[in-house]
């Protein structure tokens, strides 16, 4: 039995080791995140076109102007609907596909590649491909709907302000479900067969087995998927910018694209910085409690 003293010394060295280990990531973080964010905040208090030598100090004016713009609130709302969609959409579809495929299907490896493939495509290419999918009169989606007699459901996918966000979400679903699928599939594979067998022997239906046995055990996978989804929803930029530029007429704009347009489309760097600061704060308010909650649940799960 090692003495109490011995263990204490061990844990003291552990403390040292931890500090040394953490110094590298913390330094990287301070240099590459904290410093740029501080300089962005500083810029947000100025009016600056991005080129002239002297930014003009304007205090909180940029923040006040934004707070009075319906365009700004529209983008905030879009970010929130993306958050809801990304938490639910790709996650549940990925889970469904993973659960179906986990039953020892024929051609499993083919399915696995097909579902994952879209996830590996760069955003510019996804946008180009989906501009055709969504071509409103002769695109693939409209053509298919017409050929199965549902032509009346065809829409002006990317051109109708009330439809465009759903269309973008559709392409996002195609693009990112592969990730959720992959993680859940791995998670399901990780569940010991005995658990499932035991439940079966007790007469549970596959449906019950899934919800009562498998799903609770998928918690670690779920954390990763939901965490990524929340982060993606706030950072969302590429796919919107490449497909619609935030249009038609701001309809599909999110904060990151609005910031970009404000900065480089209109030369208002200070205001664009204020948008980023708002974005950070909003994301912080929405996501941080959530991440915090997830971190806590993990610790509780471990404690059990």
């Amino acid at each position: 039995m090692p003495s109490f003293q011995f263990m204490r010394r061990k844990f003291q060295t552990a403390g040292m080791t931890h500090a040394i280990f953490l110094s590298l990531p913390v330094t990287l973080f301070a240099v590459f995140y904290v410093y740029p964010i501080i300089s962005t905040f500083n810029l947000s208090l100025h009016s600056w076109d991005g080129f002239s030598p002297t930014p003009k100090y304007v205090g909180l004016q940029n923040y006040i102007v934004l707070a009075h713009q319906s365009r700004f609130y529209h983008a905030v709302l879009n970010n929130i609907s993306w958050l809801v969609f990304l938490l639910l959409g790709p996650t549940s579809l990925g889970l469904l596909l993973a659960a179906l495929l986990d039953r020892g299907m024929k051609g499993q490896s083919v399915f696995r590649v097909v579902f994952f493939l879209p996830f590996t495509i760069p955003a510019v290419a996804v946008a180009a491909i989906w501009r055709w999918m969504y071509e409103p009169t002769s695109g693939l989606l409209t053509t298919i709907l017409q050929s199965i007699g549902l032509g009346s459901l065809a829409q002006n996918w990317l051109g109708d302000p009330s439809i465009v966000n759903f269309a973008l979400m559709g392409s996002m679903l195609w693009w990112t479900t592969g990730f959720a699928f992959l993680v859940f599939f791995a998670g399901l594979r990780n569940i010991p067969v005995e658990y499932i067998e035991a439940a079966r022997i007790e007469g549970a239906t596959p449906w019950q087995v899934f919800w009562k046995v498998s799903f609770p055990l998928l918690w670690p996978s779920t954390i990763v998927v939901l965490g990524m989804a929340a982060v993606d929803a706030m950072r969302l930029f590429d796919i919107v910018w490449a497909m619609t530029n935030g249009g038609p007429a701001y309809a599909s704009e999110v904060l990151a694209t609005q910031m970009y347009d404000t900065a480089f489309g209109r030369f208002e760097m200070g205001r664009a910085s204020a948008i980023s600061v708002y974005l950070l704060v909003i994301a912080g308010l929405i996501i941080m409690p959530y991440i915090h909650q997830l971190a806590k649940r993990v610790q509780e799960a471990e404690a059990e």
Partner: peptide, 13 residues
């Protein structure tokens, strides 16, 4: 502290 970095959109840095 480190996790807050996940919400930073890269455009701003």
């Amino acid at each position: 502290f480190l996790l807050t970095g996940m919400i930073v959109p890269f455009q701003i840095v």
